[in-house]
Each structure stands twice: as C-alpha cells, then as structure tokens.
C-alpha cells in the first residue's frame, strides 16, 4: 500500500539558516504520527510544507498521492490543518464560518455536515453566535470543526491542545480518535508527551531539522515515552 504522505530529502532554508536538513518521512492510511521535538526543531515548518503553505527549498513531497508544489490544489482538497491560530472570522457566526469553508471545499449537503460537526465539537447551541464572543477554547473547538469539515484524508495538527481547558482537550482527543478510526492519516506535533502517548500509533522525534528516531507506539512501554524521547535526543548529541 502506497504511503499517504511520502517525503524524501526535504530541505528548507530561510536565507542561509536551514530549518529542515534532508528529512525523510512517510505515513500510511490510518497511522497517527506524533512528531515530538524541542522548540525550533522544525516541526511547524515541516507541517506547513506538507500543507503547501511553505515551499520547500528542495526534496520530493507527495500528499494523498499528489506531488507538491505542482499538484498543491488537489492535495489541499484532501488535507485539513489546525495550526496555532484558529483561522476563523470574528464577525461571522459559528455556522457562517463553517458554511464559508464548506463553500470553498464545495461540500455537498453542507447544512447537514455543519450541524454534525458543530454537534461533534459541542457548539451546536452556539451555532448562531458571533465567533468574536467565543472564548479561546470555544474558538479552538470550532477551528477543529473547520479542519475536519471536509472529512480530509490527511489531518495536520500543530500543537492543537495549546490554550484548551481540560474539557476541550478531552473533546479534541475523542474527535481525533474518531477520525483516526476512519483510516485517516494524522500528523500531530506536540510538546505534551503524555498526550502523544495516549493518542498516537507512532512517535517520531525531530530535532535540528532532522528526524532522529521513530518507533511504533506499541514498542514503547506505557510510561516509556519520556525515556524514548530523551534517548533519541541524547544519541544525536
């Protein structure tokens, strides 16, 4: 089975400063990969390149069977992304925000899909409220709804738990498990090792623009993720 995400020899430089230095990566359908790494490791740059928001300096990238940047629009149709910012409009209601994105993705039966997604993220009752009246946690929940609205084959999550309260984190985790169970590919960057251990089926450690280690979650003991992470970083020193 062909990997859903296939990256080889990926290099990204900002000026002369390298952010990614010859990265190789692949993920199959149904895999939930947690990309772990310290600040400045290149995690966000890596996800933004997969999302076609940032152009790679060199390397080959295929997402959902489409080559980037040549077939970026086709790849974007099949991926959802949740970044640091919720990417929402404060002067529109929750339902209007989702309707806007449904139109961009040309979703059939958008009204029904929006109701389902709002229900999943626990905002059905607030569907007609302006987003600028929402708390940070509510905005992030709606942003999750935006990211999964078009049922993407690939879901890219850049530290999605940041700023969420415990209840919202649990809701997000439940939603991510549900998405993963549908044979979707999820790549999550996080500093929260315990959360990564609870969600992911694979852990990859990225540091200084290089993947240092990769392991299936079932190869790591339940409380062993911190040891695996430290060992990967130590070995690279």
């Amino acid at each position: 089975m062909e990997p859903v995400i296939q990256v080889s020899r990926l290099v990204k430089r900002y000026g002369i400063k390298p952010a990614l230095r010859g990265v190789d990566f692949s993920a199959r359908a149904g895999e939930f990969v947690a990309v772990l790494g310290p600040n400045g490791a290149g995690k966000t740059t890596f996800l933004r390149i997969l999302a076609s928001l940032v152009k790679a300096s060199s390397g080959n990238i295929r997402v959902a069977g489409y080559s980037l940047p040549r077939q970026a629009a086709e790849a974007r149709l099949r991926l959802g992304m949740l970044g640091h910012q919720p990417m929402l409009y404060g002067d529109l209601t929750a339902a209007e925000n989702l309707l806007f994105f449904a139109r961009l993705y040309n979703l059939p039966d958008a009204g029904k899909r929006i109701e389902t997604v709002l229900d999943q993220v626990g905002l059905l009752r607030q569907r007609n409220d302006l987003v600028r009246t929402f708390s940070r946690g509510m905005q992030q929940r709606l942003a999750i709804g935006r990211a999964v609205l078009h049922n993407p084959q690939v879901l890219l999550l850049d530290e999605p738990h940041t700023g969420l309260d415990q209840e919202a984190c649990e809701m997000l985790d439940a939603l991510l498990r549900q998405v993963a169970s549908q044979q979707r590919t999820i790549v999550l960057t996080t500093h929260d090792l315990a959360r990564a251990a609870a969600l992911a089926s694979r852990f990859d450690v990225l540091s200084h623009g290089k993947f240092l280690a990769s392991t299936a979650a079932d190869q790591v003991p339940p409380d062993g993720i911190l040891a695996f992470y430290r060992q990967a970083l130590e070995a690279a020193r």
Partner: peptide, 9 residues
C-alpha cells in the same frame, strides 16, 4: 487574525 492560512489552504 491568522485566517490568511485558512484561505491559502
């Protein structure tokens, strides 16, 4: 507001 990425996606 960080919504430019949403359009670019």
């Amino acid at each position: 507001r960080g919504s430019l990425d949403g359009l670019l996606l």
